[in-house]
């Protein structure tokens, strides 16, 4: 159920009137500035926001200018107030959005973000190269071992990044934290917002903060149940099914040759919708539609990874 749909149901709510970019808009009490922007059709860039998860407002790319406020406000989580006057395209807003995209692009591999996000990165004019050449990637386990409150000396000749080797410790999915923008979505999906498994959390501090299991244990030793809901919410391709990862490594991942087939999972009676991504007559990835009322985009290990039996065909 989308956020917008939720407001039409149930309890009668008072409405709040505010002004966004000079246009008056009325939204239910408790709605966010983002909801109001959506109602007006104003496109707001988001990275850490997802309608099915609690907003963490960590990426700050959705910031807007609220008159009389000292600092910018995250549209995704700031609740509307009567008489609020909001600017979504002021110079101040554009500067912050450009810089956030720029800071992320200069430190994280953003090559697999959606076309929409790539469009924002370009349209806000962010230039990741401004900070100099990227530093060489960290060695295996090096970032995981960094201690809070300390960092190695830097001289500014290269720009620090989160580049590091891919973590492959199971047959179902890989974790490529060189692509991690630390949006917290996977942690939320693993925890209270979906799966309640709590296999991963944010560890460390500052630029060395990272998604980790306890003591960086391999997933196979962790509480992970391989539901893959973290993959479903990851906006940058840092978390990816092994099937997709392998094809990409072999240079055989080709979206032009792919189709998406919607079906219903046959493993149990819940009725989860599945989106099967198929390439060359083989399933290469399974997702569930975000807006589906049963799954909200989430699946279990069977639905997400249990597809081999349908394609174990005789040669």
């Amino acid at each position: 159920m989308s956020r917008a749909a939720r407001f039409k149901l149930g309890v009668i709510k008072r409405t709040v009137e505010l002004t966004i970019d000079g246009v008056a808009v009325e939204v239910p009490e408790g709605a966010t500035i983002l909801d109001a922007c959506n109602k007006l059709g104003i496109v707001t860039p988001t990275l850490c926001y997802l309608s099915t998860l609690t907003p963490v407002n960590a990426c700050r790319v959705c910031v807007v200018e609220v008159e009389k406020a000292r600092v910018l406000a995250p549209a995704c989580s700031r609740k509307v107030e009567p008489g609020m006057v909001v600017h979504t395209d002021s110079e101040r807003v554009r500067h912050s959005r450009r810089m956030v995209f720029e800071l992320l692009s200069s430190s994280v591999d953003m090559s697999l973000v959606s076309g929409e996000v790539k469009g924002w990165i370009d349209s806000y004019g962010s230039d990741a190269a401004r900070y100099g050449p990227p530093a060489p990637p960290a060695k295996v386990g090096e970032r995981d071992a960094r201690h809070a409150g300390h960092h190695h000396a830097v001289d500014g000749s290269v720009a620090e990044t989160v580049a590091q080797p891919v973590k492959i410790d199971n047959d179902l999915y890989v974790r490529d934290y060189s692509r991690c923008i630390l949006c917290y979505k996977c942690v939320e999906a693993c925890g209270e917002d979906a799966q309640n498994t709590f296999a991963i959390a944010v560890a460390g501090r500052g630029f060395d903060a990272r998604i980790a299991t306890e003591f960086d244990a391999p997933l196979t030793d962790s509480a992970c149940v391989y539901c893959g809901n973290c993959i479903g919410v990851c906006p940058t391709g840092a978390l990816m099914p092994k099937s997709e990862y392998d094809l990409r490594q072999q240079g055989r991942w080709d979206e032009a040759r792919q189709t998406v087939t919607q079906t219903v999972c046959s493993f149990c009676g819940v009725g989860c919708n599945l989106d099967l991504t198929v390439q060359d007559n083989a399933i290469v990835r399974v997702d569930s539609p975000l807006e589906h009322s049963v799954t909200h985009g989430h699946l279990c290990i069977k639905g997400r990874f249990g597809f081999q039996h349908v394609q174990n065909l005789p040669d």
Partner: peptide, 15 residues
Amino acid sequence: DESCGQCVPCRVGTV
């Protein structure tokens, strides 16, 4: 060192 690492402007900006 002391940035908590939660938001992008501070986490990467301080670096």
